[in-house]
């Protein structure tokens, strides 16, 4: 069963929820696009239905809600380390199934990789309530069905936005108090077919032909085409790498902070070791490293494909490099390589 609301009662629900939760959704920032007189669609806090941008894919993913670009780990006063406080409120995120699945991918890195849980990630992640935006058509570069990220069933609330009619499946009883409206028959739907279908490579075949795939000439093209700007990785909802930075305040050098900031395997400096050596200097090698992480080695480690098929990397590449195309090339190469 679902609850049908009009805009006003939906806004009332948001108002009630906002007492205990910060509410995030895709929003349109007027004039904030890189090109003049264009907008930026990204994740931001909302307070009403009209704030939510439903017609365009957000350039940046909702990962920054739980994993901010810059996150202070410690404040230093003299030689003391102090952990920053965080907001008491919970976090509600309106997001599509692909992006909801991306949170599970980040969980693998931050909570399950290695012997320790990342406490900074966990303390935000534990607050998250999933409000799924029903997505049955997707956008022109989406391929979530191919990556198996088109469904997300473990939601708190599922929302269908049909113009001004909003239907919600409130699965988590904790939220039923906020939604009042007509009870209606409601079966949440998920996209079953994207415009784009991508065949992912068989990871066992890659394992058996690792050197063949790694040294394949298909990567060479990207040494020439890629500019190593990192846009694909910052827009990716599953990229999780970071660097640590220590700073002291200019006006008070005795105090400072240690923070972590997103890093990109595509950008210079990612592998620099003390003394000047670095690895993967060719951009094609970086491309290979990134692509293989998304479709091969992460899956080998965690049993699930990292890429959620949101297509943002294709959308944002200034050099028109298509990740989707690369994946197809890898699959082709692997299939052909095996038959050799």
């Amino acid at each position: 069963m679902g609850i049908e609301l009009d805009v006003k009662s939906f806004d009332d629900a948001l108002k009630i929820l906002s007492k205990n939760y910060k509410i995030f959704a895709p929003v349109r920032l007027k004039g904030k696009g890189a090109f003049s007189d264009t907008d930026l669609v990204t994740y931001g806090e909302i307070s009403s239905y009209k704030d939510i941008e439903l017609n365009e894919k957000s350039r940046y993913s909702p990962k920054e809600v739980i994993y901010p670009i810059t996150q202070t780990l410690f404040y230093f006063t003299e030689d003391e380390y102090k952990e920053p406080e965080i907001d008491d409120k919970g976090i509600i995120v309106f997001l599509r199934p692909c992006d909801a699945n991306s949170y599970l991918k980040l969980d693998n890195i931050f909570l399950k990789n290695g012997p320790y849980e990342d406490n900074y990630y966990k303390r935000l992640r534990d607050k998250v309530k999933f409000f799924i935006i029903e997505c049955t058509k997707g956008f022109s570069t989406c391929f979530c069905v191919s990556t198996g990220s088109n469904k997300f069933l473990d939601y708190d609330v599922f929302v269908r936005f049909d113009n001004d009619k909003i239907t919600c499946d409130v699965k988590n009883d904790e939220f039923s108090y906020a939604f009042s409206g007509k009870e209606v028959e409601f079966i949440p739907e998920f996209i079953e077919k994207n415009e784009i279908e991508v065949k992912l490579p068989d990871i066992d075949k890659i394992s058996q032909n690792l050197e063949y795939v790694f040294n394949h000439e298909l990567w060479d093209e990207y040494t020439k085409r890629c500019i190593a700007c990192g846009r694909c990785t910052v827009s990716c909802p599953t990229c999780s790498c970071f660097s640590m930075q220590d700073i002291f305040y200019k006006d008070n050098p005795k105090c400072g902070e240690r923070r972590r900031v997103w890093a990109s395997c595509m950008v210079d400096g990612f592998t620099d070791v003390a003394g000047g050596h670095s690895y993967r200097q060719k951009y094609g090698e970086r491309m290979r490293f990134k692509v293989m992480h998304k479709i091969y080695d992460y899956k080998k480690r965690f049993g699930t494909t990292m890429c959620v098929g949101c297509g943002r990397c294709d959308d944002v590449c200034p050099e028109y490099i298509s990740f989707i195309k690369i994946v197809s090339k890898v699959t082709d190469a692997v299939d052909r390589g095996e038959s050799k």
Binding site: K32, G33, A34, L40, I69, C229, G230, V234, S264
Partner: peptide, 18 residues
């Protein structure tokens, strides 16, 4: 010139008034 805005991968640089 606005080149910094164009080069920024994360929209750390954005546009203000013209």
């Amino acid at each position: 010139c606005g080149e910094c805005i164009l080069k920024c991968p994360t929209s750390a640089w954005t546009r203000d008034e013209k």
